[in-house]
Amino acid sequence: MPVARVAVPTTVDEAVQALRETPGAQLLAGGTDFCVEVNFGLRRPPAVVALRRVRELRRYEVTPASVVIGAGTTYADMGGPELSSVLPALAAAARTVGSPQIRNAGTLGGNVATASPAGDTLPLLTALDARVRLRGPSGGRTVALGEVVTGVKTTSIAPDEVVVEVVLDRRPGPQQFLKVGTRNAMVIAIASAAVVVDLEAHDVRVALGSVAPVPVRAAAAEAHIADAIDWRAAGGPRASAAALARFAELVADAASPITDHRSTSEYRRRAVQVIARRALERCVARAA
């Protein structure tokens, strides 16, 4: 029955030290996944390092070029006025996470470190090429999200490293997050998609959730649609119906979904096709 020791650090450095001092210790952030596993006897670490008191993890910073979000930022925080104005799709994703109670507790760092294929913030983070700042005994390092999340609930984060913050470049233009679930609230994603349109770089970024072991970018779809969009059309960028349809097909090609108790592979492939296209259509007008 371990869990014989619980560290309650107040700084990141203390948390790192606690991890180093206590072999096998696991980090506890918002607890929304961790505690479920403890409650059901599925997780029995010898010790726990609880991050609730580490106030420096709960900061965010918005600059003209980037947004840096502390790992302890809750989903509820992501829906706050400033973050939702610069990262509306992150706020939209956060709004779909669990219940209000879960959104008050669950954190961005927890979503990254848990690395669930259904992690609701991960598609947008993937679309924005998020970088994750980690700190360990030998100092900090910054790693691309795609290198952090290595598989279903597996990461390259070392046992003595703490997720400190997530760095996102700001992209001028609209962004969307859509999530499919069988219930209209409090549901795990069957499929999700984030679309980010950069009106200056003239590119489109698409990332998908719950349709592969890790969040995936639909690179071919991105390349196709960036070329197909008339970026200089009066009234804003637009794309033809045929281009949008091709985009949707290419999005589906990027998915490698499984069939499980929540849904089927075939449906998930269909769903990302529909939602990625709808997300894009909310960003880019359809040419007549």
């Binding site: 619980v6 607890g31 929304t32 505690c35 409650n39 609730r52 507790a105």
Partner: peptide, 10 residues
């Protein structure tokens, strides 16, 4: 919050 998802000591 849900009390079930908070560790008592936390």
């Amino acid at each position: 919050v849900c009390a079930c998802l908070v560790l008592g000591v936390d």
